[in-house]
Design a protein around this nucleic acid. Structure first.
Length: 517
DNA sequence: CGGGTTTGACCCGCGC
DNA sequence: GCGCGGGTCAAACCCG
């Protein structure tokens, strides 16, 4: 019976209103198995009304429930319209039926009562509808990612040889950060990766194809100034002014590769190089040159401990469409970043829990926060590849976010979904930017525990061989629910490099990373 | 010649 | 205030 709703969802979910329920994030895609909880936390204005009238409606409740279960399709159909009406007209939804009849007070009273009842009924229906839609939405989302994963597998199969592990390094930051949050995505190539692959070719279109929907509108990029030409200080100043406090979000990818540079689907221009303290290897600075003024920059540096590991750190938002190859990782990383920043998706420790990676049998998520880090950082450490032993780390004892992650709702330029979840802070309007489809999807993924699915998809690409068994496990609801409840966060990331240690949060597929000691 | 890289200088934030 | 380190700039250089 879900299918019937799916259609509605396809367009409904593009909006954010489904997301405005705090309750939703806790559920993941895979609701089917569990709870179709009638309780809807999301719509406050509904709930308030609902509560007040609930007793009235109890008798009717059953009817509605029945209709809900049985005649859902028609129900939903009508509800969609109703919802629209309701939004626009508020309390007057059904008023039109009986109004404007100046009568005596008694009549008015009765009329009001009738009206109230009607409203209550409608509220009930809307609630039910929302519930259904929410559920369906989650399901569709899950299916979507499953499909994407499958696609990724197929693609992987095609270019397995060429890509082999390389894909992992494919990445680009579609829209990372506006905020100071920093997300590190550590992707060390699977051991299979060959040294020969000098240029890591992006595995096209695998994975998160969904995201490949070009936005091109992203613009965002408030953070970094123009490409070179300091003269463009105007824009620079504006940008700085607008998001100076938020500009530090990052995604860093650790790839095990001998190649000096990772081809991630974007074009980069080197603008600087510097020796970093504590690392014999120089750090190179790159700017995205795929579009003029693209604010995205990246740093490339080899891990001091393991020079075979290439650490690529991305910063900024692309203000241009990305090739499929670039979008996959971009969205993953952005999702990670969003997740990090999304308070609701974190464990109470403020750390994303392992529950976020139920779909990664070989991945154990590590969430750590370094007090030394100037901003929250997520590190997805995938250095071990699929064969890595999956193990669950004991909950870290540290874990305490020095930074109020909730304070960065606009991360990744995903205002679309942020507002509903978080009280829209002024900053959001500040950095408001048109939300692209990509952003929307990304944000949707990110701000939801379902992020797991996205991550899984991307990682599947990265690793070049995602264990099929539970590609769909990504849609495990319970897991996510737990996570939001503060599941024992996995152990501290044991970043393989000093750099990684700087990161605040680390997700890793490595059993114990490449850390020698 | 245009675009990318190299590299020393400069700027800025932070800690002492 | 000073020094340090990270990040950026931009002239010089290289390459196709």
């Amino acid at each position: 019976m879900e299918k019937q709703h799916r259609r509605e969802l396809t367009f409904l979910h593009s909006g954010d209103f489904l997301r405005q329920n705090p309750g939703v994030p806790d559920r993941t895609l895979d609701d089917s198995s569990d709870h179709v909880k009638p309780q809807i936390k999301e719509m406050d204005f509904f709930s308030s009304q609902y509560q007040s009238h609930d007793h009235h409606q109890e008798s009717k409740t059953d009817n509605n429930d029945n209709s809900n279960n049985n005649g859902s399709s028609s129900f939903v159909d009508s509800c969609v319209n109703i919802g629209l009406n309701l939004l626009s007209s508020g309390p007057g939804v059904s008023r039109s039926t009986n109004e404007e009849k100046p009568v005596n007070s008694n009549t008015q009273e009765s009329a009001l009562k009738t009206e109230l009842e009607n409203l209550n009924e409608e509220n009930r229906r809307l609630r039910s509808m929302l519930d259904q839609i929410t559920k369906n939405y989650n399901e569709v989302q899950g299916q979507l990612f499953m499909a994407l994963q499958k696609q990724a597998h197929l693609n992987q199969g095609d270019q397995k040889d060429a890509v082999n592990g390389m894909a992992g390094t494919v990445m680009s930051v579609q829209q990372l950060m506006d905020s100071r949050a920093s997300v590190a995505l550590d992707v060390n190539e699977p051991s299979g990766s060959d040294d020969k692959t000098q240029e890591l070719s992006a595995s096209q279109e695998n994975t998160v194809e969904v995201v490949s929907i070009k936005d091109g509108t992203d613009q965002t990029s408030q953070s970094w100034g123009s490409l070179k030409s300091p003269k463009l200080d105007q824009s620079k100043n504006e940008e700085q002014a607008s998001d100076a406090p938020f500009r530090k979000a990052r995604v860093s990818v650790r790839a095990r590769s001998e190649a000096p540079l990772i081809s991630d689907g974007c074009q980069w221009r080197k603008y600087g190089q510097k020796m970093a303290k504590g690392n014999p290897c120089p750090r190179a600075y790159y700017r995205c040159t795929m579009a003029v003024g693209c604010p995205v920059r990246k740093q490339v540096q080899r891990c001091a401990d393991d020079k075979s590991i290439l650490i690529t750190t991305y910063e900024g938002n692309h203000n241009h469409p990305l090739p499929p190859a670039a979008t996959a990782m971009a969205n993953t990383t952005s999702a990670a970043a969003a997740m990090l920043l999304s308070g609701s998706t974190k464990s109470k420790d403020g750390l994303p829990s392992s529950a976020y990676f139920p779909s990664l049998p070989y991945a154990s998520s590590m969430a750590t926060l370094s007090a030394s880090a100037p901003f929250p950082t997520i590190t997805l450490d995938l250095t071990q590849g699929p064969n890595a032993v999956p193990f669950l780390r004991p909950p870290p004892s540290n874990a305490s976010f020095p930074l109020p992650l909730n304070g960065y709702p606009q991360l990744l330029g995903s205002p679309m979904f942020s507002p509903p979840k978080l009280p829209a802070p002024p900053a959001m309007q500040l950095g408001h930017r048109p939300t692209s489809m990509v952003e929307t999807v990304t944000a949707a993924i990110a701000s939801d525990p379902n992020f797991t699915a996205a991550l899984a998809a991307a990682i599947s690409t990265i690793m070049g061989a995602l264990p099929r068994n539970n590609g769909n496990s990504s849609i495990n609801n319970d897991e996510n629910n737990k996570s939001s409840n503060g599941v024992p966060a996995p152990a501290l990331a044991a970043p393989g490099s000093p750099q990684a240690q700087q990161s605040c949060t680390t997700f890793s597929t490595k059993a114990c990373n490449n850390k020698p000691g």
